[in-house]
């Protein structure tokens, strides 16, 4: 889930005049490579590291990070160290929004018990998605540690949650929308775009 776009009723404002691109494809690739190195450094290797992507774009980012971890240290198995975690049924805003479709949760065969889990999401905003993810992880096992990687931290946290690995810190206004576009999902070149709300107030 993308907490930066969770505003019901707002049409997609990708092509508006107030849309600007803050990260290009090269920036995204460099940020992911740096995050991958930081994960290895922090975990002192790749043993027991499990990447869990939060749908939709977090899963894609986790897949890319897994490829980079395997390139840094061949001991990392990009199949056994990668999973996806749907947090829909743990969200605290279910009653405020139209019914969300439940996504897939897929854990590596060895589970997450005793592992170092790295949650991967595209945009970190209120922190509520991550809270839901922590609850979901609690029902699935007891990892040794849980860390958080996100491509963009746009601020405005509503819970005491902070990321361990950040691609880019992006100061934003609450009303702005931040979107991460990834070639696997959006078809276009990778980018992070920021747009003012419809109506143009700043």
């Amino acid at each position: 889930m993308n907490p930066g776009t969770g505003m019901p009723g707002h049409p997609d404002a990708l092509t508006g005049p107030d849309t600007r691109t803050v990260l290009g494809a090269g920036d995204v690739a460099r940020a992911l490579t740096r995050i991958a190195h930081e994960i290895v450094e922090r975990a002192k290797g790749v043993d027991d590291v499990v990447l869990l992507g939060i749908p939709t774009r977090g899963v894609t980012l986790a897949t890319r990070l897994a490829e980079r971890l395997a390139a840094i240290d061949p001991a990392f198995d990009p199949v056994q160290g990668l999973g996806e975690l749907d947090v829909t049924m743990y969200r605290d805003d279910l009653r405020r929004q139209p019914t969300r479709a439940v996504g897939v949760t897929r854990l590596p065969g060895a589970g997450i018990e005793g592992k170092t889990v790295v949650l991967v999401d595209d945009v970190l905003f209120s922190g509520r998605t991550i809270r839901a993810a922590l609850d979901a992880i609690g029902d699935l096992g007891r990892p040794r540690a849980v860390r958080l990687a996100c491509l963009v931290d746009r601020g405005h946290r509503e819970l005491p949650i902070r990321p361990d690995f950040v691609g880019k810190n992006l100061p934003t206004a609450v009303s702005e929308r931040v979107r991460v576009l990834l070639s696997e999902i959006d078809g276009a070149e990778d980018a992070v775009v920021i747009s003012a709300p419809a109506g143009g107030e700043r």
């Binding site: 969770g6 019901p8 009723g9 009653r95 929004q97 139209p98 019914t99 969300r100």
Partner: peptide, 9 residues
Amino acid sequence: GDHSAEGND
């Protein structure tokens, strides 16, 4: 879900 505003976001 909240069924007062039907739709899919």
